[in-house]
Design a binder for these strands. Structure first.
Length: 222
DNA sequence: AAGAATAGCAACCGCCTTGCA
DNA sequence: GTGCAAGGCGGTTGCTATTCT
């Protein structure tokens, strides 16, 4: 049974946080009719929401394959690499991180990465910050990944896609411990790299360590 | 213990692109 | 070729939880 709003009151659009009931309605409707045609979907499902709002709610939150929780070091590494290549192309970056949404990656970048840039008193797009990423942050992430995965070259020397089906090794040589850092076969997302089961780090602990490295780096610049 | 400051994240806004009549 | 509607994307805002003073 489809609900077609008749009166103006029924047409009045809701905004703000979604309720559990609205979520349920949206999920049920999509389960029955599939996604797409969001504007009419919103009307027919009886949701007083814009099509855009429904689409966003589904893609960023309700979709069954959405992964939640801490961004793992592998994912962080991938984000840093892909962002250096593609810039703020969040949806494109998200395509290479299964289960992560563009919104989540964007939020990660703004809250974590830009915060570090701010602490360094430089712009995220500056050469200085690029150097920090390339020579400190990324190598540290690689070390962490190596350590936690039993020094698996597949993880530590993983390749980063230029597109999701065109892998290249994007980890800078300075960040690679051995002469042969390769071993992963193609796009991380496709080989399931981020699903290898490397445990999450306690973000605050390892980020603290990042800051001691920052001090070293700043010293080197003096 | 309470208020202020900060961080994290969900959701909205506005612009651009695409598809179709 | 043009206009319109819908979808997609990046930027921004605002709310809530947490941390700090």
């Amino acid at each position: 049974m489809e609900f077609i709003p008749q009166s103006e009151e029924e047409m009045e659009l809701r905004r703000g946080a979604w309720t559990a009931d609205e979520d349920l309605v949206l999920m049920n409707y999509i389960a029955l009719h599939g996604e797409g045609r969001w504007s009419s979907l919103a009307r027919r499902a009886g949701l007083r929401r814009t099509g855009k709002s429904c689409r966003l709610r589904w893609l960023n939150y309700l979709r069954p394959d959405v992964r939640r929780g801490n961004i793992t070091p592998e994912e962080q590494l991938l984000i840093l690499q892909l962002h250096s290549r593609w810039g703020n192309r969040w949806s494109k970056i998200a395509q290479c991180l299964p289960g992560r949404t563009d919104n989540e990656i964007k939020n990660y970048w703004r809250t974590r990465v830009q915060k570090h840039a701010k602490h360094l008193h430089c712009d995220v797009h500056s050469k200085q910050f690029e150097d920090v990423l390339r020579h400190l942050w990324i190598p540290r992430l690689v070390e962490r990944i190596q350590a936690s995965s039993g020094d698996s070259p597949a993880a530590a020397g993983a390749e980063v896609p230029t597109s999701c089906d065109e892998p290249v090794n994007a980890i800078p040589e300075s960040a690679q411990g051995g002469e042969d850092g390769s071993g992963a076969n193609g796009c991380w997302s496709e080989c399931g790299y981020s699903e290898l089961g490397v445990p999450d780090f306690d973000q605050s602990i390892w980020e603290d360590e990042m800051w001691s490295m920052e001090d070293i780096w700043l010293q080197q610049q003096l």
